[in-house]
Design a binder for these strands. Structure first.
Lengths: 216, 216
DNA sequence: CGACTATTTGAGGCGTATCAAGAAGTGTGG
DNA sequence: CCACACTTCTTGATACGCCTCAAATAGTCG
């Protein structure tokens, strides 16, 4: 229904131009790709795997601002340093472009500049949508929205293979991992979803309307 | 300390170019400037007054995404329709530019395109910062962060004249108005702030460090 | 298989919401 | 200027949703 969160477009962004794009780089599970307040040298596109980007409070409380899946671009900054930390959730391959070369291209290629703006706007759209969730939705509605977003971004088939832990989900939704688990159990008990695979991360949506009714 | 939320720059943005800028338009208190999902025709700069932009859930729960003060630009979109509703908090004057003329300028003037990107990035920075607040801070920390943000954006002198109600503050912070009121009372009882004017909206910060300690 | 991590589930507590009533502040008309 | 109606704000009592702590189960990896 909503395209929020998806970075896929009808046409690929002209940002990772062949002439400037570096080859694929790999990061292992839980490996940091860049850290908050590090110099923002590079921009990344996920090739395979999944990435979380988050901010921390002084005492360790964590807010995951976004998950990035294959095709998504992250690490776009206009300031000198990154605004958050990015980590691979599972083994992940990314394409890297150095910022200076991108900015150079933006000055000579209108299409690149336009795509940069589009990408940033897309992130902003997602962030504003997520503010509504964080500030005003209850735990059940948050988890419902999460499942619908993941289904849409990962497959759209109702068969979801989550790469992230319950804690990641909780830190994305502003909940605890126990509350996330309880709400998933609630949905399972109601037949809204079931754990289809051998693990608890493979989820099959049985009643999408039941979730959409909660997504408001 | 933080520049989050402030849209002021060393140099003014070259967006409201003399050739294209319309004259000042006025909106009365609580008047809608544009509505969510209306066609995004125009872009606005606050001249005087204050604006809130918010999203709603189906049952009326409201999340204020941002406040806009003189000098701030809002209503920037890349999609066809606005992403939220904008209302004047008090009597407000705004400068208006039609989007098509702005987009035209962006194609012929690199500086305009660059400023558009900068503005969008600034909004994104604020949104991500606010997600951390909404998802992971307690009510006291939220109110402390709010007071510091307002001080910085409205004056920076420690004398704050809030244009918005407790309900607006609550909907910005993901709280109820009663909780906001209680936390303000708490800070007042501790001598962190006092109500300096004849109304409860004029606040004088007595102990900024006390607030910054909570802002983390 | 054994050690470890991730997840579920239960019991109880805390923080914020809800409901309610009164005080403070604002605006209007006489 | 005051009287009155209305809105906003404060404060108290209580309820409840989510968090915390704890322990058992499920899943992963050597």
């Amino acid at each position: 229904m909503s395209i929020v969160g998806s970075q896929s477009l009808d046409q690929p962004f002209v940002i990772f131009h062949a002439k400037f794009a570096a080859s694929e780089t790999f990061f292992g599970k839980d490996q940091e790709i860049f850290g908050e307040s590090e110099p923002a040298d590079c921009i990344y596109e996920v090739i395979s795997g999944a990435v979380r980007s988050y901010k921390l409070l002084g005492d360790g409380r964590r807010q995951i601002c976004a998950f990035h899946f294959p095709g998504d671009i992250f690490g776009l900054e206009n300031s000198l340093s990154y605004r958050f930390t990015a980590e691979a959730i599972v083994d992940t391959g990314v394409r890297v472009v150095r910022r200076p070369s991108l900015e150079f291209m933006a000055t000579i290629d209108v299409k690149v500049a336009h795509n940069l703006l589009n990408l940033t706007n897309r992130s902003l759209l997602h962030a504003e949508h997520h503010m509504l969730l964080l500030g005003r939705k209850r735990s059940r509605e948050k988890v419902a929205a999460f499942l619908l977003e993941m289904d849409e971004r990962l497959a759209g088939t109702g068969m979801i293979a989550l790469p992230m832990t319950r804690r990641d989900i909780a830190d994305y939704l502003g909940l605890t991992l126990e509350t996330v688990s309880r709400e998933l159990s609630y949905f399972r008990a109601r037949g809204v979803l079931k754990f289809s695979g051998i693990t608890q991360r493979q989820i099959e949506l049985q009643d999408r309307q039941g979730l959409e009714a909660l997504d408001c």
